[in-house]
């Protein structure tokens, strides 16, 4: 059923915390909520359409050049997304800068094309792509929430922790600098995996 393709990747089969795909970009774009949000959206679009196109083409693709075809389709989609961002939401595209291009290397997309789209019907594949993109975006936003709140004291660039709390203004608080660095994203992802597995006993390795 289609619905399962959509909801499965949100938790029980989440690309980042269960399939362990796409960690690299999760570390890079989660310093702030806004880029994480747009990155999530872009990846949803690319995974969904990469899955759809590959699923439509799946019977005609020569298996020997399968990976090359996947790469061409994915790269073309990413360039399209990048061009549209530059034309219509220039500010955001500036913020994401090189990371949009790096969607090409996001393992989720190729992973899902290879594992799902090549063997399933277009509509199911499309939903699988949307689902995996959503699962990715959800984790990105959770990580970015903690990193931006404790690293910069803001959420979506809106100040949450009052200026007057800061030591510089005579308060007691200062931002947690390590939150801004990639290792902290890895630690947060680790904590999320830990929490997630403690609620989903069937995912625990024996």
């Amino acid at each position: 059923m289609n619905l399962k393709n959509l909801t499965g990747p949100l938790s029980a089969n989440n690309p980042i915390i269960v399939q362990i795909l796409g960690i690299c970009s999760a570390l890079a774009v989660t310093v702030k909520m806004e880029p994480a949000f747009v990155m999530g959206l872009s990846v949803i679009v690319v995974t969904a359409f990469a899955n759809l196109v590959m699923s439509l083409l799946r019977k005609g693709i020569p298996s020997r050049i399968r990976i090359i075809v996947q790469l061409v389709v994915i790269a073309a989609l990413v360039i399209l997304v990048d061009q549209f961002l530059k034309a219509f939401v220039y500010d955001v595209s500036k913020q994401l800068s090189v990371y949009v291009g790096l969607i090409i290397t996001n393992c989720i997309i190729m992973g899902r094309v290879e594992a799902y789209a090549l063997g399933n019907k277009p509509w199911d594949s499309f939903m699988d792509g949307v689902g995996n993109g959503l699962g990715y975006a959800a984790i990105l936003l959770i990580v970015a929430f903690f990193r931006e709140l404790f690293g910069s004291g803001t959420l979506f660039d809106i100040r949450i922790i009052p200026e007057s709390w800061y030591i510089a203004n005579g308060g007691f608080y200062s931002n947690v600098g390590i939150m801004l660095f990639p290792p902290m994203a890895l630690i947060i992802v680790g904590v999320i995996i830990w929490v997630h597995r403690s609620f989903n006993k069937d995912l625990q390795e024996k």
Binding site: V72, V73, A76, I79, L80, Q83, F84, K86, A87, Y90
Partner: peptide, 19 residues
């Protein structure tokens, strides 16, 4: 793919430059 990308790029170019 080349035609597709070239058409997109050309049609969005003026908008991008304006931005």
């Amino acid at each position: 793919v080349a035609v597709l990308l070239a058409v997109t790029s050309l049609s969005l170019q003026s908008r991008q430059n304006e931005n």
